[in-house]
């Protein structure tokens, strides 16, 4: 009997305490795992320096974060979506359709994408052409599309080591993959003239798709996990080479050796100057509809991009972020609550 009374009391307690859970006083953030470390650093500094509750930050990937963000308005939905690529028109339309009318886009810096191999392996000096020729699903040989025959890096470019091709690339759920396809594969395809050859064979549209398609014979492996998984794969495979974010590489230089691309070694400086070709902007999207509803939301968005945080010498740059040269304009846009689609 006492058991039953206890369980009834417990259920009643739960039901009663479920009621006041509607409002919330901490900001909720989710999205890109590349942006995640920057968001946690900013969230921690925000809690250190203000009286607001520390924001809760989740990962999950850019696409997943934006989907949650656009699910609607109210305390059940997240306030900020992190993304390592710009929000698409379709995603913005989805947001608007679900009542999320005021979305502020904040570009807070840049990140380089680097190619790195095990610390004990040979040195690589790559070009986007080499990478495309090594990883493309199909190449043009004697005027015909053929499955990529390259087995070793030396098959692609005789100056490269005669090492088996084994590259670990972020999977398609990562924003990094999109940048990799656009800035490396497509760029290499253009530079080597393969795109022109493909277009002559099958037309422009097929050429665009063929340029970014990765080979699926096991020499290019999709990694759906985080960079730590890529690092573990590179560690265990002496021929392995991985695609990493610059800040991840900077944290693990004792285990990784970076490959210069087109002769430029990736550093915060070379990415900032635009010399290093493979970089992308990092964003977060703020739900301005939640201003006033979630305490500290606008303050956090502004705090994230102040010079002391996102500027040169700030904690984000210390961690590996390439500061945005136009940070002042970004700060002004956040302060003015400049929403997307307003102009």
């Amino acid at each position: 009997m006492s058991m039953m009374r206890m369980s009834a009391a417990a259920l009643a307690l739960l039901a009663a305490s479920a009621l006041p859970a509607a409002a919330r006083n901490q900001i909720q953030v989710a999205g890109s795992s590349t942006v995640l470390p920057y968001a946690t650093i900013a969230a921690e500094a925000f809690a250190d320096n203000t009286d607001f509750a520390a924001p809760v930050v989740e990962g999950g990937g850019s696409g997943a974060g934006i989907k949650q963000f656009c699910a609607g308005v109210g305390p059940r939905t997240i306030d900020i979506a992190n993304s390592s690529r710009p929000m698409t028109q379709a995603e913005l339309a989805d947001c608007h359709a679900n009542g999320v009318a005021r979305v502020i886009e904040v570009r807070f810096g840049y990140d380089g994408i680097v190619f790195a191999s095990g610390i004990n392996g040979p040195d690589f000096a790559l070009s986007t052409q080499d990478i495309h020729a090594a990883l493309a699903a199909e190449v043009v040989v004697d005027g015909r599309r053929t499955p990529n025959p390259a087995r070793r890096w030396a098959d692609v470019n005789p100056t490269l080591p005669a090492q088996e091709i084994a590259v670990f690339v972020p999977g398609t759920k990562h924003g990094t993959r999109e940048v990799f396809e656009e800035k490396v594969m497509a760029a290499g395809c253009d530079a080597s003239g393969t795109r022109a050859e493909l277009a002559a064979l099958d037309g422009d549209k097929a050429a665009r798709a063929a340029c970014t398609a990765l080979r699926s014979d096991g020499r290019a492996v999709d990694i759906d996990g985080d960079y730590t998984e890529t690092l573990a794969r590179v560690d265990s495979n002496p021929n392995g080479m991985g695609v990493f974010g610059l800040s991840f590489y900077e944290n693990n230089t004792t285990r990784l050796k970076v490959a210069p691309i087109d002769g430029v070694v990736p550093t915060v400086a070379s990415v900032a100057s635009g010399e290093y070709p493979v970089s992308r902007p990092l964003f977060f999207y703020v739900k301005a509809d939640h201003f006033g509803l979630v305490p500290g939301l606008k303050e956090f968005a502004e705090f994230f991009v102040v010079d002391a945080i996102a500027g040169p010498g700030g904690p984000l740059a210390d961690y590996g972020l390439v500061p945005d040269p136009q940070l002042a304009a970004v700060q002004a846009a956040v302060a003015a609550e400049h929403v997307m689609g307003a102009d």
Partner: peptide, 15 residues
């Protein structure tokens, strides 16, 4: 998630 604030005492802390 990255949570740096301790939850308060139950029952509110459960939420």
């Amino acid at each position: 998630a990255f949570v740096t604030t301790y939850p308060s005492a139950p029952p509110q802390g459960l939420f």
